[in-house]
Amino acid sequence: MYINPIVIFFASIFTSNIVLTNFLGMCSYLAISRDLKSSWGLGQAVIFVMTITTILNYLVYKYILVPAELEYLRYIVFIIVVAAFVQLLEMVLERFMPGLYYTLGIFLPLITVNCAILGVALFMVIREYTFIQSLAYGAGGGIGWALAIVALAGIREKVDETKIPKGLQGPGFALIVTGIMAMAFIGLSGIANIQ
């Protein structure tokens, strides 16, 4: 069944949010969500990298791995491509956009190991998306991840000022909030579904 790319785009932001439905990319999601500013910085970087690496991985998969019947190697290859791309991106930014490099650049190394990036690339393969669909899915996935982390950071900034039982402080509380956020997002599932 062919799904309209626009549907994929919005679905991956709201109803199939990579964090809130798949719980991927959790470690930086929990760690960098203490303040809004940092989480938005990381969110932007993820949007950017996820969109481009999904396309790159689509091309590598379609034109190298499939013809050579090496689909089973996609895990390794995808990771190498993501790592190399992030490295290259860092250099390009430093040279041509130093301002952006200093705001975004410090988050880039953290993204190489963000499993949401790899997860999106792998889902793209499993769901047999076309080029345009992959593009929509990559961009939507990134925006969805950024939305989730910024929302969590906003909530945590408020909650930090109140008293929480000792055992729940930090990640414990963040996970509970994430769970509630995930349930809230279920309310949107009538809009579109791609899974």
Binding site: C27, S28, L30, A31, I32, R34, S38, L42, I106, F107, P109, L110, G170, P171
Partner: peptide, 10 residues
């Protein structure tokens, strides 16, 4: 717990 690169630098 992990922290932002900014805090790492500080």
């Amino acid at each position: 717990m992990k922290q932002t690169p900014e805090l790492d630098r500080i």
